[in-house]
C-alpha cells in the first residue's frame, strides 16, 4: 500500500515539475513590481519579490509588465493599468489619495500627538529644583565626604 502511495507521489512530483517553468525576473520588472502586490493569496510579497515558481498571479503579472515595457509604456502607465484591472488592491501600499491618505497620515499624526502629550507632561510635571545657597552646599558636601570616608574604611 505504502509502495503504491509513494509511487503515486513520485508521479505527482514529476507532474508538478512538468507544470512549472522558470521565472527569470528582468531587472526593469523589479522596479515596477515593487509597487504592485502579489495577489495570489499565499504570500505577502510584491510582484518583484514573490519567489513562488509559476505563481498564478506574479508570473502573468511579470509577463504583462515586460510586454508593456517593450510596447513603450512607462512605469506609471503600467501601474495604472494594473489598478484599472484589479482595483487599488493591486498596489503594494495604499495610494496617497482619497481615504488611502489616512494610511500614510495616521502614524505620523499619532506620533506628533504623542510628542504633544509628552510636552504637556513635561510642562505639567517639570519643577526645577530650587537654587541652594552656599551654606546648604557646604552642608551636603560635608555629608557626602563623611559617607565616602566611611566607605573607605
Amino acid at each position: 500500500m505504502k509502495k503504491w502511495r509513494n509511487s503515486f507521489a513520485l508521479l505527482m512530483m514529476a507532474g508538478l515539475c512538468l507544470a512549472q517553468t522558470g521565472d527569470l525576473v528582468p531587472p526593469e520588472v523589479r522596479r515596477v513590481g515593487d509597487r504592485l502586490a502579489c495577489l495570489c493569496g499565499s504570500c505577502k510579497n510584491t510582484v518583484a519579490t514573490c519567489q513562488m515558481l509559476g505563481c498564478h498571479y506574479t508570473a502573468p503579472a511579470r509577463a504583462k509588465i515586460t510586454a508593456m515595457h517593450k510596447a513603450g509604456a512607462d512605469d506609471e502607465a503600467i501601474v495604472a493599468d494594473f489598478v484599472k484591472r484589479e482595483g487599488k488592491k493591486a498596489l503594494a501600499a495604499p495610494p496617497a489619495e482619497g481615504f488611502g491618505i489616512m494610511a500614510w497620515l495616521a502614524p505620523p499624526f499619532m506620533a506628533l500627538a504623542g510628542a504633544g502629550l509628552i510636552a504637556w507632561f513635561i510642562r505639567r510635571h517639570r519643577k526645577p529644583a530650587p537654587e541652594l545657597n552656599e551654606g546648604d552646599v557646604a552642608k551636603y558636601q560635608q555629608a557626602a565626604e563623611r559617607e565616602l570616608s566611611r566607605f573607605d574604611e
Binding site: 515593487d34 509597487r35 502586490a37 495577489l39 505577502k44 510579497n45 510584491t46 519579490t49 482595483g87 487599488k88 488592491k89 493591486a90 498596489l91 503594494a92 501600499a93 495604499p94 488611502g100 494610511a103
Partner: peptide, 9 residues
C-alpha cells in the same frame, strides 16, 4: 474597496 498594505508601506 479593498486595498493592500504590504511590506513597502
Amino acid at each position: 474597496e479593498k486595498v493592500s498594505v504590504d511590506a513597502p508601506w
